[in-house]
Design a protein around this nucleic acid. Structure first.
Length: 760
RNA sequence: GCCGAGGUGGUGGAAUGGUAUACACGAGGGACUUAAAAUCCCUUGGAGAUUUCUCCUUGCGGGUUCGAAUCCCGCCCUCGGCACCA
């Protein structure tokens, strides 16, 4: 082929890869194969009706590069893809158009899959999964039943966030500024029976085990923040002239002598009984203090009541000023003052001793509080996994027998939730009625479905054994593939999705579904890619009309150009604006590589310089891919190509190194060139080159000569020159003579092969 | 308000204590062409001298150091996350 024609090339290789199942991950025991496994996971997308966004390929291409490199290095790579396809947009679309979510989902998936295939991603498509497939959600339901059996799923009447428009209960994290995150309508409180998951039981382990994993510090910080562990004490304040008492939670019991009033949250059981004359008794000094009700104290956190210490807490101080309440300072320079027997004690010691003293009197106990709350797991919607539970008037809540799983979504015509907010499933009368699994009398199915998270909590396990009909996954396969070696996804999922899936994994590990040797953490390493913004740095959105469709780019420039551009545009973790012009640079680069083939000759023709650059490039690209520094990896490849352009003839040897290094980034172009020029094998599975450390080093260096830290001259020297010799050469130069003339050299700083600095 | 990330040419960025601005885009000039595209060559941080050269420059102000984009202190701004967490 004379001209670079990406369209033809890409179609050709994509067909071949599909036909030959090139990127299939081999399950154990692979006969004779001793390749170590490597499991690379990218967050699976929600197949929306909008199709792929240029943000998707950023993650997929980045990790595809890693996957392709690992294969070359001899790993048995698992790099799968699937669809997280339950969700509201599809349901809302169904309500609007009457098109069944199953149909819409199928269409959307076809579009997504086609778009992804056109990017040349090396997924093992044999392992494709879909959370809305009954053979998949059978196991999502099965996990729920196991949680129920262990007492970790329970029903509770909860004051929930109720969206007045969506007619759906929202979890706390789905409410933004008192409005529904999805539709922007007003959210009110409503009492509702909800299925809850006891994630709080795992709070400590979710926190502690962060030490075992390789996540970015900012991600760990997010997890810690969300769990919000704080050590403190519950202290009892008796209400005067009453049998009631108020428990408060505090992390700073050493400040109790400065407590001048109590505050209850509006939801506190005693809040109704509080009046301006109510007094509580401070257990350390028997002072009678007023009691208030205020909404700056949260019902759900701690005991729903606080001891207010305006001398040492800003919010208490604000409140005290507003109500002209006394402010007492009881800690000065970390030492207690005006605090009875504890005066003069260091605050850290006093904190412990005060609790101990009050504990002996039965008025306090040490406790640990978490911000983390149990997880509301019910949604009154249609397009989700039915919660596989049955309610019998006689026997109560019972799980559907496992042999009857999956509980499939019934076919209905109207997907709208009921007016009271009940799930649309409540309309499927014949589906609801079921025999009680225990007593056999007529009972009713649960009509709530699970939230979006349910399917994505454990999907990475199913990839290990996607077609297993008897088990969630074969333990042998899990033991081989798990844990995930490298997980990449969006920053927006680093708190909740990560926490929830870690919780479910730990639970499955506890009950023996996950083989013990794997350990109780699902992801060894987590990274996050940055968002791609529209041109000019504004978010891409339909309303702004600045959404870029990756397939248009593929049409015009080719997938390899898009891949190289997205990886070159800037640091992988960083948010970055899209720039059409940048595509041109990527295109020029690949064209240059293409044209270089005409200069490939035999073994002669390479200068020593090219040899050095080749080895330096191998080193740089090898290291940069491992740290996701794709932008600098590509720039070093550009340097190599620029250097090759200067040569009259390039050896096959060096050109093939270039092709292998570039292959993960531009798999189609390099494969085509490889086929044309190389006699043996394919580029994708050619061994990753190794560099010679001796050849990476420069033999000559440009040594900097400074005077008082300012660069005044440079000299070309051999490496390893001693201080004495360097000094001699440096001082003999005309420039230096000029600069130093008439001054006394006070000090000389010498850094070998880098610089010499004269301080005068 | 708190937590996290960041601020470097006209633009995206490189450099994590040692030549600031690699690589790329854009722009200007030139070659090829009837012309355009494509391709190639040169110039390109700013200011002043223009043959040698000098001074300034990494958000702002200090500090440490022979030497700071990089480390420390204070401030300003942008982006992301969380919302009274006792």
């Amino acid at each position: 082929m004379k001209e670079y024609n990406p369209k033809k090339i890409e179609e050709k290789w994509q067909k071949k890869w599909e036909k030959e199942n090139t990127f299939k991950a081999v399950d154990p025991p692979a006969s004779g194969s001793k390749k170590p496994k490597y499991y690379i996971l990218v967050e699976f997308p929600y197949p929306s009706g909008d199709g792929l966004h240029v943000g998707h390929p950023r993650s997929y291409v980045g990790l595809d590069i890693l996957a392709r490199k690992k294969r070359k290095e001899g790993f048995n790579v698992l790099f799968p893809m699937g669809w997280d396809s339950f969700g509201l947009p599809t349901e809302n679309y169904a309500i609007k158009t009457g098109i069944h979510p199953v149909v819409a989902t199928k269409e959307n998936i076809e579009v997504f899959k086609d778009q992804e295939k056109k990017l040349g991603l090396s997924f093992d498509w044999d392992r494709e999964i879909n959370t809305t497939d009954p053979s998949y959600y059978k196991w999502t339901q099965w996990i729920f039943i196991q949680l129920f059996k262990k007492g970790l799923a329970y029903k509770a009447k909860m004051p929930i966030n109720w969206c007045t428009s969506c007619k759906i209960g929202l979890a706390n994290e789905e409410v933004v500024n008192d409005v529904c995150e999805r539709c922007g309508s007003k959210v009110v409180e409503k009492e509702k029976e909800q299925w809850m998951l006891k994630i709080t039981e795992y709070a400590d382990r979710l926190l502690k085990d962060l030490d075992k994993v390789d996540y970015p510090e900012r991600v760990k910080a997010g997890q810690k923040e969300w769990i919000g562990r704080s050590e403190g004490a519950e202290i009892e304040f008796k209400i005067q002239d009453s049998d009631n008492s108020v428990l408060v939670f505090t992390t700073r019991s050493e400040t109790i002598f400065g407590c001048t009033y109590l505050v209850l949250s509006p939801g506190h059981p005693l809040a109704k009984d509080v009046n301006p004359k109510t007094r509580a008794i401070n257990p350390v000094n028997n002072k009678k203090i007023p009691v208030f009700v205020a909404d700056y104290v949260l019902t759900e956190y701690g005991t729903g009541a606080i001891m207010a210490v305006p001398g040492h807490d800003q919010r208490d101080l604000d409140f005290a000023k507003e109500h002209s309440l006394p402010v007492i300072e009881v800690v000065k320079k970390d030492v207690l003052v005006d605090s009875g027997n504890f005066t003069g004690m260091k605050s850290e010691k006093a904190r412990e001793e005060i609790i101990e003293w009050l504990s002996k009197k039965g008025r306090a106990k040490k406790t640990i509080n978490y911000k983390l709350r149990d997880w509301i797991f019910s949604r009154q919607r249609y397009w989700g996994e039915p919660i596989p539970m049955v309610n019998c008037k006689k026997c109560g809540w019972l799980p559907v027998p496992e042999k009857d799983l999956p509980v499939e979504l019934p076919k209905i015509k109207d997907y709208k939730p009921g007016k009271e907010g009940e799930s649309a499933l409540a309309k499927a009368k014949s589906w609801i009625g079921v025999d009680c699994p225990k007593c056999g009398f007529r009972a009713k199915r649960e009509t709530d479905v699970m939230p979006n998270w349910a399917g994505s909590n454990w999907y990475f396990l199913r990839y290990c054994d996607p077609n297993n009909k008897k088990k969630l996954a074969d333990p042998k396969k899990l033991e081989y593939w798990m844990p995930v070696d490298w997980y990449n996804g969006g920053m927006e999922h680093t708190t909740l999705h990560l926490l929830y899936s870690r919780f479910i994994f730990k639970f499955l590990w506890d009950i023996g579904v996950i083989p013990k040797p794997i350990g109780s953490e699902p992801y060894k390493k987590r990274t996050s890619h940055g968002m791609i913004l529209g041109e000019g740095g504004i978010k891409m959105s339909k309303s702004k009309g600045n959404v870029i469709n990756p397939n248009k780019i593929v049409e015009e420039y080719g997938a390899d150009v898009l891949r190289v551009y997205e990886m070159f545009m800037g640091p992988f973790e960083q948010t970055i604006p899209w720039d059409v012009k940048g595509l041109k640079g990527a295109q020029r680069f690949l064209k240059k590589v293409w044209r270089l083939k005409d200069r490939v000759g035999n073994e002669i023709g390479d200068g020593r310089d090219l040899e050095k650059t080749v080895h330096q490039t191998i080193k740089k690209v090898t290291e940069d891919i491992e740290s996701l520094k794709f932008n600098t990896a590509i720039s070093s490849l550009m340097v190599l190509v620029n250097e090759m352009e200067k040569q009259k003839e390039i050896s096959m040897n060096y050109y093939s190194v270039l092709l292998i290094l570039l292959n993960p980034f531009a798999p189609h172009t390099t494969e085509e060139l490889w086929e044309e020029l190389c006699d043996d094998g394919l580029c994708w599975n050619s061994e990753w080159p190794k560099y010679n450390p001796k050849l990476v080093k420069e033999e000559k260096v440009s040594l900097i000569i400074q005077v008082n830290g300012k660069v005044r001259d440079k000299i070309e020297t051999d490496i390893g020159l001693s201080e004495v010799k360097t000094k001699k050469i440096a001082l003999s130069s005309d420039k230096m003579i000029k600069y130093i003339k008439g001054n006394k050299i006070k000090n000389i700083i010498f850094v070998k092969d880098r610089l010499i600095n004269f301080v005068i």
